[in-house]
Design a protein around this nucleic acid. Structure first.
Length: 270
DNA sequence: CAGAGCTCCTGAATGC
DNA sequence: TGCATTCAGGAGCTCT
């Protein structure tokens, strides 16, 4: 389940193989993703990949005449393969490059998306995104301001991509644990210290995962096909009923906003 | 506008 | 052993 560090890692891994390369053709075996893959994408050819960037969990390929915007959803991953690599189950899209290499998209649950925009300004989904968590724009003053009218649980609020991007379910629980904040605390009731702690915890959790090369549970694979290895370092996620590493209290779980949340009831008081 | 709930999908885990 | 049910989850969309 790619979160921001996984997406960043993926982007960095595939960049050398793509940058400056011309797209020979695109093979779409399964167009039915989060949104139907558009005809423009299927017809892409003779477009050079000038640049790869990331905004939130979107990977953006800058081509000659537009932008290819890719989201990995929950189970999507991109890898660079040779021309003769057999097509596996759930290998939905191939971007065939001039040098024979292929950018291959695999997505078991098809929650991901491939979209085409002539102008990136037309991509409303990206235009509406909140700040990048690892940028200076994501700071205490910003979060305090955005939270002051939010009565929802802070766990749900930090996962709202209109506020801050890239904080998925795993890292939301982890960051709240580090900040010693109960996930159900209403966002507008966090005090200054808690806001400070939350901001630095989110940055710390994401940076750590980034350094590790992206977490990885079950479905996520790095673009070279290697399975990640960060899962064992999670403090609370998926650990309900097990002892808190800090105080020994049993970790609890509770569904908030349709998502399971994990916390230590002793370390993270309401 | 804010917030709650629904939805897409497959495979692993669980239940009987 | 096998079939049916449940759960997981990013995030846009619908409804209140």
């Amino acid at each position: 389940m790619p979160e921001l560090p996984e997406v960043e890692t993926t982007k960095n891994k595939i960049t050398p193989a793509l940058q400056g390369q011309k797209i020979v053709r695109v093979e779409v075996r399964q167009p039915s993703l989060r949104w139907i893959v558009s005809p423009e994408i299927m017809r892409l050819k003779n477009e050079t990949v000038h640049d790869l960037s990331r905004r939130g969990k979107y990977i953006i390929l800058t081509l000659d005449h537009g932008y290819l915007v890719i989201h990995l959803g929950m189970t999507g991953f991109l890898k660079i393969v040779d021309a003769n690599t057999p097509i596996g189950k759930h290998d939905h899209i191939d971007l065939v490059l001039e040098d024979g290499k292929i950018l291959r998209y695999n997505d078991i649950r098809r929650f991901g998306s491939w979209q085409w925009f002539e102008n990136i300004e037309d991509c409303i989904l990206i235009q509406n995104l909140g700040v990048e968590p690892l940028s200076d724009d994501f700071n205490s003053a910003y979060l305090l301001n955005r939270f002051k009218t939010k009565k929802i649980a802070c766990k749900i609020a930090i996962m709202d991509s209109k506020i801050v991007v890239g904080v998925g379910n795993i890292y939301a629980s982890e960051a709240l644990f580090l900040a010693k904040i109960h996930p159900e605390t209403p966002a507008n009731q966090l005090n200054i210290k808690q806001i400070n702690d939350l901001v630095s915890s989110i940055k710390a959790v994401l940076l750590k995962a980034l350094k590790e090369g992206g977490t990885t549970i079950k479905d996520f694979q790095q673009s070279d096909g290697k399975i990640g290895y960060f899962v064992q370092q999670l403090n609370v996620y998926g650990r309900q009923g097990k002892k808190c590493y800090v105080c020994g209290t049993l970790i609890e779980s509770k569904v908030l906003g349709q998502r399971n949340s994990f916390f230590c009831p002793a370390c993270q008081k309401k």
